Simulated assay, not measured.
Amino acid sequence: MSEPAGPSSHLEPWLREILRCPACRSELRDADGPAGPELVCTNASCGLAYRIDEGVPVLLVDEARHPS
Rank of each mutant, 00 (worst) to 15 (best):
A23C: 13
A23I: 15
A23F: 13
A23K: 09
C24I: 13
C24T: 07
C24G: 07
C24V: 09
R25G: 04
R25I: 09
R25M: 07
R25F: 10
S26V: 09
S26T: 07
S26Q: 09
E27S: 14
E27T: 12
E27W: 14
E27Q: 11
E27H: 15
E27R: 07
E27I: 12
L28V: 12
L28S: 13
L28Q: 12
R29P: 15
R29N: 13
R29D: 15
R29L: 14
D30S: 12
D30C: 11
D30I: 13
D30Q: 14
D30A: 10
A31N: 05
A31E: 02
D32G: 01
D32Y: 01
D32E: 05
G33W: 01
G33E: 00
G33H: 03
G33A: 15
G33Y: 01
G33C: 04
G33L: 04
P34A: 15
P34T: 14
P34H: 08
P34L: 08
P34E: 13
A35S: 14
A35K: 05
A35Y: 06
G36W: 03
G36N: 02
G36R: 04
G36D: 00
G36K: 05
G36C: 09
P37H: 08
P37E: 05
P37M: 12
P37T: 15
E38V: 10
E38M: 13
E38D: 07
E38G: 06
E38P: 06
L39C: 11
L39P: 00
L39D: 01
L39K: 06
V40I: 13
V40D: 02
C41L: 06
C41P: 01
C41R: 02
C41F: 04
N43Q: 05
N43I: 06
N43G: 04
A44R: 15
A44D: 07
A44Q: 14
A44K: 11
A44T: 11
A44M: 06
A44C: 06
S45Y: 12
S45G: 08
S45R: 15
S45V: 09
C46S: 10
C46M: 09
C46D: 08
C46H: 09
G47Q: 03
G47D: 03
G47N: 03
G47R: 01
G47K: 03
G47M: 04
L48K: 08
L48I: 14
L48S: 03
A49D: 00
A49K: 02
A49F: 01
A49W: 00
Y50P: 00
Y50F: 05
Y50I: 06
I52D: 00
I52F: 11
I52W: 01
I52T: 03
I52G: 09
D53Q: 13
D53I: 11
E54Q: 15
E54H: 15
E54F: 12
E54V: 06
E54N: 14
E54Y: 10
E54M: 12
E54L: 08
G55F: 14
G55A: 12
G55W: 10
G55L: 09
G55D: 01
G55S: 14
G55V: 10
G55E: 00
V56K: 04
V56H: 00
V56D: 01
V56L: 07
P57S: 10
P57D: 01
P57V: 00
P57R: 05
P57W: 01
P57I: 02
V58W: 05
L59R: 03
L59I: 03
L59D: 00
L59C: 03
